[in-house]
């Protein structure tokens, strides 16, 4: 009897935990909307910051985030799709090679994002970039410093597992009958992948891409010292330029600015923009993924 009562208490605790999580989610959304909505205007989105970043808009941060995620997507998606094809179609479940790849992908997924920043600094900037300068640029500093290219590639590495996992899941939902149909018609393995498997996984590839963009747009740690800039008076014109980013803007404005209180509306509005962006991307991805899973049943 006593035991039963204890169980009832724990059961109600489980429900309370769920409510608590939902409450926090709603609080974050509500407070961000309440603080950011009044300052959110068309002008805010298309203007440059003014008066030492105490006024004006966040246009360069929006463009910077968009460009960075674009370059990141171009790098991460093909890589991720091909790796997923390997894991789902070529890898034998028990081969050491396949297991090692799986472990590597998992490792990429759990390594702290700041480590990617260090890697970007040490590898892309310090090693690749500086050697590029030595070889192509006669030692003049161009690539051996933080830039949108290196930040994007760093971010691509971070989002690679996101793409791989989504695409592999989608590929695995394609029924074996489809592959058999193709092979029985005399298609080779590659023809089967190209004409049956990949077209059937398009939703999954799209889901993975959206999730990666959402993740990349929101991450700040990897770009802290690989390319994000505090303030730029111009948009990036080349891959070797630095860029402004929404997340970094929030961080800088809320912690480094000389007068945090004065820029509070800007901070909230920027947070709202970033949150709306990642939130809607994630919502699309969640819907797409549920659709894929439903189809698989």
């Amino acid at each position: 009897m006593n035991r039963n009562r204890k169980d009832i208490i724990i059961e109600s605790l489980t429900g309370i935990s769920v409510l608590l999580i939902i409450f926090i989610i709603i609080s974050i959304l509500a407070i961000t909307i309440k603080g950011g909505w009044p300052n959110l205007s068309w002008k805010f989105l298309i203007e440059f910051p003014k008066d030492g970043m105490t006024k004006g808009g966040i246009f360069p941060a929006i463009v910077g985030t968009a460009l960075m995620t674009l370059i990141m997507t171009i790098a991460a998606v093909p890589f991720g799709v091909i790796t997923a094809v390997y894991l789902a179609e070529y890898a034998k479940e028990n081969s050491v090679f396949a297991k090692t790849i799986r472990f590597a992908v998992k490792t990429l997924a759990v390594v702290p994002s700041i480590i990617f920043g260090l890697f970007g600094l040490g590898f892309f900037i310090g090693f690749i970039g500086q050697n590029m300068d030595k070889i192509f640029n006669g030692g003049v500093l161009k690539w051996g410093q933080p830039s949108i290219l290196w930040a994007s590639l760093t971010m691509a590495l971070l989002t690679l597992p996101v793409v791989i996992v989504s695409v592999e899941e989608a590929i695995r939902t394609i029924p074996v009958e489809m592959r058999e149909a193709s092979l029985a018609l005399g298609a080779t393995k590659w023809q089967t992948i190209r004409r049956v498997v990949l077209p059937g996984s398009l939703t999954g590839i799209l889901t993975g891409t959206i999730l990666a963009i959402s993740r990349g747009a929101g991450e700040v740690a990897p770009i802290l010292f690989t390319g994000a800039a505090y303030y730029l008076s111009d948009l990036p014109h080349s891959l070797s330029d630095q860029f402004m980013s929404l997340g970094y803007h929030i961080y800088i404005m809320s912690t480094q600015s000389s007068n945090v209180d004065a820029t509070l509306p800007i901070q909230f509005a920027t947070t709202l923009v970033l949150l709306l962006l990642t939130f809607s991307l994630n919502a699309i991805a969640v819907i797409l993924r549920y659709r894929i899973r439903k189809k698989a049943k």
Binding site: I25, G218, V220, F268, V286
Partner: peptide
């Protein structure tokens, strides 16, 4: 899905929420 969405909140947003609220 709600918790999946929480997973999608950028940590800078959570940090901002913690800092401000």
């Amino acid at each position: 899905p709600a918790i999946e969405l929480l997973a999608g909140f950028p940590s800078v947003v959570i940090g901002f929420f913690a800092l401000m609220v």
